[in-house]
Design a binder for these strands. Structure first.
Length: 501
RNA sequence: GGGUUGGUAGCUCAGUCGGUAGAGCACUGGACUUUUAAUCCAUUGGUCGUGGGUUCGAUUCCCACCCAACCCA
């Protein structure tokens, strides 16, 4: 519990809340206002599944006693009989309440509010209209809700409130609950997929002395006892590869990383990735794995490999297209000449033309990627692997054997968005040391996204990293794809927001 | 970072060519023993995002700012 006495926030109050507070005050006078001695023995949706199809007469011959509880979402008082709909985590079921059966409790119920949490005990039956309901013999108020719920018909549509008060969104919007249960199913599938391949799930530091594994701005924090600056990780990569050095040949981690960047429909400062590393594999093995994983997810989660996303029809049934970065640059930049793609001066003239800003020390590889991101990336709607990324922008990836300008690295795009990034790992310690030096000189030239030199990581490589391939998949974006969500905030339970004013 | 749109009752939304603001639902009171957004009758409810400016008067016009959504970089 935190101490808020210093600056007690002013909470919005209104007559609706005042009335409910008065009701709560009366409850306190008559006994325990927040009882916790009721135990239900049935869930709403289980009852509907088990008994929903039974005829009305069946219930006359079979007395089914149930104890249910949940939040009241509808209340219809009709004189000496009433209906209430309660919702538990499985679904909803209707309660039928009669004055003759409930006496004083019935009168009390008339004063209870939508949003209150009730417990009902009684027998199952079907109403005239055929809705499975509980004819209640004992009714209790378990929790008095002090705040009114949104409009029962229009619901809650205001994005800001849905994100800031997700609990209200979850009470009201079934679609929202669905997105998050799907998110959990996706992550469960991913775990079982990797576990079945004998991968081991591990946890590595989020609080790091040297943030590594990606080019991004880190969050900075401070460790008081050690009096030192620390960082929230931007990726788990370097620790996971240390584990491969240690002999755990297949490892993965599903957890948060943090990047100190702006907010958008595609970016949250903290986001979830799976990173996995597999010894004795290369980047092509990982492209195959991504394909199998996506197929399995489609089959298991959606039941189809044809996805509608933002009005676009995506075909995930076929093997995914595989093309090189230079192919993409040529294809989506009409007029650019393939045999000059490694000529810095030539690429600069294209950057000028495309209004792409570049730095003096940007080489051909960096400029290629800038051009691709400007002209090609957003056009990769159907699932596509783009591979052969320049070594210049891939400081942790293994160089291609035939062409040292590029690495054995790919990124995977769907809907014009990067969903995954994988490569054959650089396991030449001396090459890695050189690449770190390059990054450090970029950093001293003012590139605050450039990497730090991680001497311990180089030392680990010097013991020998087996030939290894590594992959990272953005879980939030994957969930967006599979739930047809167009904003990352729709797949994060508590997305980052600016403070309320 | 740039552009567009929005912020009015608890919720969903109207509206005011500048004269202290409305509806539906919710709430409160009443009627009603099989409802499904129950229905019917009668009420209650607002610092019109915040701060300035213009004006006799601003929720409305102007400026700045805050928050959000969407698009672009």
């Amino acid at each position: 519990m935190s101490d808020t006495s210093q600056d007690q926030p002013v909470v919005d109050e209104n007559h609706l809340i005042a009335e409910r507070r008065a009701k709560l005050a009366k409850l306190r006078e008559t006994g325990q206002a927040f009882p916790n001695d009721f135990r239900r023995d049935a869930l709403a949706d289980d009852l509907v599944t088990l008994y929903g199809e039974r005829e009305s007469a069946w219930f006359d011959a079979n007395v089914i006693d149930v104890k249910v509880s949940g939040r009241m979402l509808a209340k219809r008082v009709m004189g000496k009989a009433s209906f209430a709909k309660i919702q538990d985590h499985s679904g909803q079921i209707q309660l039928f309440l009669q004055q003759t059966a409930l006496a004083d409790t019935y009168e009390a119920f008339k004063g209870w509010d939508v949003g209150d949490i009730l417990a009902g005990e009684g027998t199952l039956f079907k109403t005239k209209t055929g809705e499975l309901s509980v004819k209640v013999t004992t009714l209790r108020l378990l929790v008095k809700s002090l705040r009114p719920l949104p409009d029962k018909w229009h619901g809650l549509s205001d994005h800001e409130t849905r994100y800031r008060q997700r609990y209200v969104d979850l009470i009201i919007n079934a679609e929202s609950r669905k997105v998050f249960s799907t998110r959990t199913r996706i992550i469960k599938y991913l775990r079982s997929f990797l576990d079945a391949m004998d991968f081991m799930e591990v946890e590595t530091p989020m609080l790091q002395v040297i943030p590594g594994g990606a080019t991004a701005k880190p969050f900075v924090t401070h460790h008081n006892a050690l009096d030192m600056q620390m960082y929230l990780r931007i990726a788990p990569e370097l620790y996971l590869k240390r584990l491969i050095v240690g002999g755990f040949e297949r490892v993965y981690e599903i957890n948060r990383s943090f990047r100190n960047e702006g907010l958008s429909t595609r970016h949250n400062p903290e986001f979830t990735m799976v990173e996995l590393y597999q010894a004795y594999a290369d980047f092509r093995d990982l492209m195959d794995m991504v394909e199998r994983l996506l197929h399995g997810l489609c089959d298991t989660i959606l039941g189809t490999r044809s996805i509608e996303w933002e009005g676009q029809q995506l075909d995930l049934a076929q093997p995914f297209q595989r093309v090189t970065v230079e192919d993409m640059v040529v294809q989506y930049t009409p007029g650019i000449e393939r045999d000059k793609l490694r000529d810095v001066g030539y690429l600069r003239t294209w950057c000028d033309q495309l209004k792409i800003a570049y730095k003096d020390n940007d080489g051909a590889g960096k400029l290629q990627i800038e051009i691709f991101e400007k002209t090609g990336e957003h056009r990769l709607i159907q699932p596509t692997f783009v591979y052969s990324y320049p070594a210049e922008v891939s400081p942790l990836a293994r160089r291609n054997d035939a062409d040292p300008f590029i690495t054995d690295r790919f990124e995977f795009f769907v809907c014009g968005r990067e969903l995954a990034n994988g490569f054959s790992e650089l396991n030449d310690a001396e090459d890695q040391a050189e690449r770190f030096h390059e990054q450090v000189s970029r950093k001293s030239d003012g590139d605050d996204e450039a990497m730090f030199y991680d001497a311990d990581y180089v030392r680990a490589l010097e013991y020998g990293l087996p030939p290894t391939a590594g992959l990272g998949i953005g879980i939030d974006r994957l969930v967006m794809l599979l739930t047809n969500s167009n904003s990352i905030r729709d797949v994060l339970l508590f997305p980052h927001m600016r403070p309320e004013t």
